[in-house]
């Protein structure tokens, strides 16, 4: 049984004007330090996701969607409230992240699979299937620093979905691949979902959301604005953006976004 439960979760972090300072600067200026800016990325979020839920997360840029995913994945610890996540998690965030650029495709499949908790024995059974799904063929022998964004995405997606996670967290990476791979990826996601697992998907492309999700959360200013069935929430969101008089033509907005 997989489970995601957030109780009054808030996430606040401070950002300084400069990301990293030298020790010298710090010692000289430390006495007159400028105050740092506090960012309230998530504010009192309550969320309950059950088995079989396929949740789409929509909202403006900076609404806290990606932060929410990273918090669910355990990368950002909440500053207040409790986060309960049970089940094996697989996250697809920034696709170029977490590859060793100097190593080839095969090796990177190995590293990622180990990172997701595979053992050499269990990977051996899967690695050919993963390689096949990427359709990268000979390119798998090339260091991944020569890969295009689309190829990296193929690699990342193939590995991530091969380990059959209970919870999948996906941050609008599907749009990177070519059309054929997008179709294939959607088909595999549906496959994965059919065995009653959870998906949390952040996307600006509403056709993907409508195709994949049975529940949508609309986030605004780090909180939940609306939570409900896909069509209802997406329509409400689109209306709030385009104005109430227009009848939204969703396809057009999706491509514009």
């Amino acid at each position: 049984m997989a489970k995601i439960e957030l109780k009054d979760v808030s996430l606040t972090f401070n950002i300084r004007q400069q990301k990293r300072v030298t020790l010298k600067e710090y010692l000289v200026q430390g006495l007159f330090r400028r105050s740092s800016v506090a960012v309230h990325a998530l504010v009192d979020m309550n969320l309950n996701i059950r088995d079989g839920d396929r949740v789409g997360v929509i909202g403006h840029n900076g609404a806290g969607k990606s932060t929410l995913l990273k918090m669910l994945a355990g990368i950002y610890p909440p500053t207040a409230g409790t986060r309960t996540v049970e089940g094996s998690i697989c996250s697809l965030f920034d696709i170029s992240l977490g590859f060793e650029p100097e190593a080839n495709g095969w090796d990177n499949i190995t590293y990622r699979a180990y990172l997701q908790g595979e053992s050499p024995a269990s990977l051996k059974k899967k690695i050919d299937g993963i390689a096949e799904f990427t359709e990268l063929g000979e390119f798998l022998n090339v260091p991944v620093r020569h890969y295009s964004a689309g190829m990296l995405m193929r690699l990342a997606f193939s590995i991530a979905t091969a380990v059959e996670p209970q919870i999948m967290l996906v941050d609008e990476v599907l749009a990177v691949g070519d059309l054929a791979f997008q179709k294939k990826a959607q088909a595999r996601m549906k496959d994965l979902m059919s065995s009653a697992r959870m998906l949390v998907l952040v996307a600006h492309d509403f056709s993907t959301i409508r195709a994949m999700c049975n529940r949508v959360i609309w986030m605004q200013h780090g909180g939940v604005m609306m939570d409900g069935p896909t069509d209802e929430v997406v329509d409400a969101y689109v209306q709030s953006v385009t104005g109430p008089t227009q009848t939204p033509h969703v396809g057009a907005i999706a491509t514009a976004a």
């Binding site: 994945a73 355990g74 996250s91 965030f93 920034d94 992240l97 977490g98 990172l115």
Partner: peptide, 9 residues
């Protein structure tokens, strides 16, 4: 950093 941003190890 890339791994840290990806997985809570």
């Amino acid at each position: 950093e890339a791994y840290i941003r990806q997985s809570p190890l």
